[in-house]
Design a protein around this nucleic acid. Structure first.
Lengths: 195, 195
DNA sequence: ACTAATTTGGTACGCTCGTGCCAGTTTCGT
DNA sequence: ACGAAACTGGCACGAGCGTACCAAATTAGT
């Protein structure tokens, strides 16, 4: 169900944002009708009025969150200083796009959702089209950034680098005190170093 | 609670195996007291008698499954034919260890658990020690296999290759009809090709 | 202004879940 | 053989869940 009135649209949006927040904080399992309603300060029934099912709500939340990430990426691309983006700075830029901007100690938590959603897609096929779209746009963005930074790469090479980062992250998650960003950083630096 | 009588030990084992089966078929969310009991052909209360909590049961199932994988890896190492393990055959061997032996079309399903558990560890810290142990042993096994095959590698290099495979897999999961093994195979072949 | 469509929000149903309980049975140690 | 320990299994509680329902309130279209 889509909203037909301005106020309804605002309410719907509030629900999506609440759901996206829950997604980030607690993962897919945390997105429940009641939790979303409470977080948005709306009654329970509003969640079933604006969304046909919980899956719909989850998908909307994921799309909202993904679009936010893409917007962040585009902003970084726009403000990219072609002169001062070599070496470490460039690696950090790539990591910012792939893992989100660093938040200090709570990195592991912030990064988790990016991989939960990939894996969740395995058991929730209805998320696949959405994830493919978001993922494709992110890849494109990265290719643009590499090109702008004077290191043009092909689609295949970008996919390799992304795989390397993603693999480093999921393997870092099992450490006693995980620091996925550092692990990804190490591998990315090595892979991008001139041979 | 641990079993003290032979029959009790058998029952407990049956529960662990049932839980492991559910884990493989349906992921972490499928491991429920009632489902485990039914699959094992035992009453519900047996699950709470032998395991203090559901987390205990999940951990036991995961350990069981992981030990099975390691046993499979050791068997492959033992039967390794030093002569005929170059090129493609070797890559398939590595993939078998990392993703499990290929099962045809249902690869995506079979592979999924390997990554669900990595990501699940992010939100279930109690699994971390176990996952670290299993992961460490698998890494060691791979190093041995590389050495035996005449391509000695360091720990760092093995971790790079594993990250590459893992990243390729999680990114392949969002395809319309995922073939994570093929994606991993492509990247692994390229990374291991002589420069 | 007035009818119709939309939105609201309180409530309830039916289900699954983890877990506690406990009288009965089996098995073990001696 | 016999007391104790281990085990069995049926049951029920309380909580949380997705979702349906519907009278009341609001808003839109004319």
């Amino acid at each position: 169900m889509t909203a037909a009135t301005p106020k309804g649209e605002r309410r719907r949006q509030a629900l999506v944002e609440a759901a996206a927040g829950l997604l980030v904080d607690g993962g897919f399992d945390a997105v429940r009708h009641r939790a979303v309603a409470e977080r948005a300060g709306l009654p329970l029934a509003s969640t079933t009025y604006y969304f046909d099912s919980l899956d719909d709500l989850v998908a909307a939340a994921l799309e909202h969150h993904g679009q936010g990430e893409l917007a962040y990426g585009k902003a970084r691309l726009a403000e990219l200083d072609v002169e001062a983006c070599g070496g470490d700075a460039f690696i950090d830029l790539v990591l910012d796009l792939l893992l989100g901007p660093t938040g200090g100690d709570r990195d592991a938590e912030a990064v988790l959702l990016r991989y939960e959603r990939l894996v969740a897609t395995g058991r929730r096929p209805y998320l696949r089209p959405l994830m493919r779209k978001l993922s494709g746009e992110l890849h494109g963005l990265l290719i643009e950034i590499f090109a702008r930074a004077g290191q043009p790469v092909g689609r295949e090479r970008v996919e390799e680098l992304i795989a390397l980062v993603d693999g480093a992250v999921v393997n870092a998650l099992i450490e006693i005190s995980p620091d996925p960003r550092a692990a990804a950083r190490r591998m990315l630096a090595k892979a991008m170093a001139p041979r």
